[in-house]
Computed example of a mutant assay.
Amino acid sequence: MAKRAARRLASVERSATVALLDRVQQLRAQGRSLVDLSRGEPDFVTPQEITEAAVAALRSGRTHYSPSRGLPELREAIAAKLLADNDVVVSAADGVLVTPSAKHALYAAFTSLLDPGDEVVIPSPGWVSYAAMVSLAGATPVPALLDPATGFRITEAVIEAAVTPGTRILLVNSPNNPTGRMLDAAELEAVLTVARRHDLVVISDEIYEHIRYDGHPHLSPAAYLRENTLTVNGFSKGYAMTGWRLGYLAGPADLVAAARKVQEHSVSCAATFTQIAGTTALEDSQPAVEEMVSAYTARRALLVEGLNFLPGVTCAAPEGSFYAFPDISGTGVPDGSEFAEWMLDDAGVVMTPGPAFGAGGRTHVRLSFAASEQELTDALERMDKALRSR
């Protein structure tokens, strides 16, 4: 057979972040001393009460299939959380789909809503898997290039310029990975205006919602455009549960039902005992989340101050998430991919190249401060030495 893979995979690269993790593991196996600031997961242990809830569930025999849409108690907890925290009204019965990760919630949404020829507008820079997922669904990702000079602000003009008659979905992510930006009221209004004008479905990825700084409010599009918005969220980032693989999709019953078909014929359901743990997370673990955010706040200050001290590097303080996204265009190595490669080879500091997040990140790199203060200090010292010896 000459053809071994589907043609739609031709435009899909490997996940840049997963590939980088593989390379880090290979280099460490070879004895390289590395400081890894590419991590996309909290470095904290899952809060104890969540783990204990899962262990109790396992010991009591909760090891079988759950309903495909999710356990009723978790769907009720999710609906209550959305109403209390986000002013978003959804039906626990048919407006919530519990998924094995927020990533799968996104994949199920794209797969269930998109046909060949459809387009999805994705603000750029944006998370590395958005465009790939759209392509895997047989549709076309269209970047809306955000301007670094404005702090990557979303404007009506930028989004409108990317919309065509084939546009079906407008994607937003706040707090944003990789920029750390959060939607403000004017940006949200721009999103809502364009979505209403063209009758678009808005998919709002809110996975970093709990990690915010300086009192920045979290704005959910579904609170203002309920009938056309799907909200994606989960437990990985806020509750340090990346390995548990638990997320959810919430919104209008007909759109959630479509995504449920994808889930039923792919993964069936999320693991039952993780759903029980997720219910505990929503109901009992907010103090632990606040402790983690307090630690992130101190690390953010250390990293941003240190980056702005480096020659040729400028970095705005992120408003949310645990990423800094510095501009390295003044270093003499203005391409983020080349800069990241240089820092890995010469300084032993692992960071994610900005271009991995789309054309909007060309002159940037992403550094995670889900790392100890000692690791952050070590990384900054290594980068400073490399930059000043160039």
Rank of each mutant, 00 (worst) to 15 (best):
Ala149Ser: 14
Ser220Gln: 11
Gly238Cys: 07
Ala185Trp: 02
Leu219Ile: 03
Ala190Asn: 13
Leu171Thr: 06
Pro148Ala: 01
Leu225Pro: 08
Gly166Tyr: 07
Glu227Tyr: 00
Pro123His: 06
Pro217Val: 03
Val134Glu: 12
Arg168Asp: 09
Pro123Gln: 06
Ile203Gln: 09
Arg226Gln: 13
Pro221Glu: 00
Tyr130Val: 11
Val142Trp: 03
Thr229Cys: 05
Lys237Asp: 14
Ala185Glu: 14
Ala157His: 12
Lys237Gln: 09
His210Lys: 10
Val194Met: 09
His198Tyr: 15
Pro217His: 02
Glu206Cys: 04
Ile159Asp: 06
Ala162Gly: 13
Ser174Tyr: 09
Ala139Glu: 12
Glu206Met: 14
Ser129His: 04
Leu219Asp: 04
Asn228Ile: 08
Gly138Glu: 01
Thr140Pro: 08
Leu188Cys: 04
Ser236Thr: 10
Arg197Met: 06
Tyr213Ile: 02
Tyr224Gly: 05
Glu160Ala: 15
Leu145Phe: 13
Glu227Lys: 02
Ala195Ile: 10
Val191Cys: 02
Arg181Gly: 05
Ser204Arg: 01
Leu188Phe: 06
Leu192Asn: 01
Pro141Cys: 01
Val128His: 07
Val158Glu: 08
Leu192His: 04
Ile211Met: 07
Arg181Cys: 11
Met133Pro: 07
Pro175Gly: 03
Val232Arg: 05
Ile169Lys: 08
Ser174Thr: 15
Gly234Gln: 02
Ala157Ile: 05
Ala240Tyr: 01
Glu187Ile: 05
Asp205Asn: 13
Ala137Asn: 12
Leu183His: 04
Met182Tyr: 00
Thr140Phe: 10
Ala162Cys: 11
His210Gln: 08
Pro217Phe: 02
Thr140Arg: 15
Ala240Ile: 00
Met133Glu: 11
Thr193Met: 10
Gly215Leu: 01
Ala190Cys: 08
Val172Cys: 09
Gly234Leu: 02
Val201Asp: 10
Val232Ser: 06
Val128Asn: 02
Pro178Gly: 01
Asn176Ser: 09
Val134Ser: 13
Pro143Leu: 04
Leu146Pro: 13
Ile159Pro: 11
Thr231Ala: 13
Arg153Pro: 11
Ala222His: 04
Leu136Lys: 14
Val201Glu: 13
